[in-house]
Design a protein around this nucleic acid. Sequence first.
DNA 1: GGTACCTGTATTGTCAACAATATTGTCGAT
DNA 2: ATCGACAATATTGTTGACAATACAGGTACC
Lengths: 208, 208
Amino acid sequence: MVADARVTEELKAAILRGEFAPRQRLVEIELCEQFDASRFAVRAALQALEADGLVERQRNRGARIREIGIDEAVEITQVREVVEGLIARRAAERVDDAEAEALAEIGRAMHAAVAAGEVGEYSDLNARLHALLRDIARHDKANGIIAHLHGQMVRHQFALSRVPGRSKVSVHQHQAIIDAVIARDADAAEAAMRAHIVSVIEALRAIV
Amino acid sequence: MVADARVTEELKAAILRGEFAPRQRLVEIELCEQFDASRFAVRAALQALEADGLVERQRNRGARIREIGIDEAVEITQVREVVEGLIARRAAERVDDAEAEALAEIGRAMHAAVAAGEVGEYSDLNARLHALLRDIARHDKANGIIAHLHGQMVRHQFALSRVPGRSKVSVHQHQAIIDAVIARDADAAEAAMRAHIVSVIEALRAIV
DNA sequence: GGTACCTGTATTGTCAACAATATTGTCGAT
DNA sequence: ATCGACAATATTGTTGACAATACAGGTACC
């Protein structure tokens, strides 16, 4: 696994960037040319991404980009709800003063971004907040599962960030999470995170 | 993926049965003989089981059985706590009368098994209860994650079932879960499941 | 005109040989 | 006797060719 790893990474990045349409066929030879790799490496990459849930394969019929419908996106987000709840709880238990200040800073930047109407900036801050909480929680298993689920959600995540007015609602939820973690209140942190993601689920359902 | 799938399945079953010791090296040629397959198929199986978290591989150094220490087992069980909590909640929301009766039946059998001191029988009933709850919940993503985590826990699970007196404690927790689901009380079902698994975590920590 | 079959092509599945790399054992020098 | 360099061996990584399979298009028959 050496060339394999490179191809796996590049192919995954390309999928996450949205370069392939859902249900699009992934022909091995075409991928060989695109990534300048052998069929062996491409095959290994496809197998890895199948385990990742990004690609589906049928015997003798090849691989295609897995389509994730709204129902599955909701299920994924429901799991995310409880696992990110665990992460928020752990973060509240383990946060140190420097990390608390970093959280507060993200909170202030979020308010500023919403006030200025910068949705792209707000979206970045959102990702940074969740990533920082994962860093603070230092829970490898939970973090791994979130990464796994996140990979399958990129398309819907993008759609979500385009919903007008969502940032105005979610900024308060994010602030509640930040406040609870800084206050070292584990129960409140978990509850705030779950409330936040429940509202994400509602927004998801509303898209259709 | 045809011979591959067979080898993957058999190898996984062998690992779960405990036929390989933790950190034991898995030499490809030996596995070829053992499962009467080509190196190609063995390789694919090893890659699949790496993604499954049962095997770890290093470049040019081959594969070994992944050792799961007590700390990791605790983390796994913490994730299980919240995801099985979600499953219990969903089960309470979706259970029908026939399923409720099946749950009640398992509860009665559990009490009987504890009274008779049949630990093996109780352990089976425990597995059946959790499986039935997953059936009722019909939450593919959550069920998939539980299956994934369970595969990594078999060794510790076995150690847990040997702790004397555990069934006497857990039978009441199980009954609380059953009662809450039958009463269609989602909050109580989630809380009961989480309380149950918290006690599993404590028992895990106590083993060392 | 429609349906079933057959053939050609595109694509994936499998294999055995070869190359690259790590590990182990041996030898000599200090 | 211990350490380091070096050679031998074991094991994995990679490649290209070949076999098996599914799909599309055309043809004959009803």
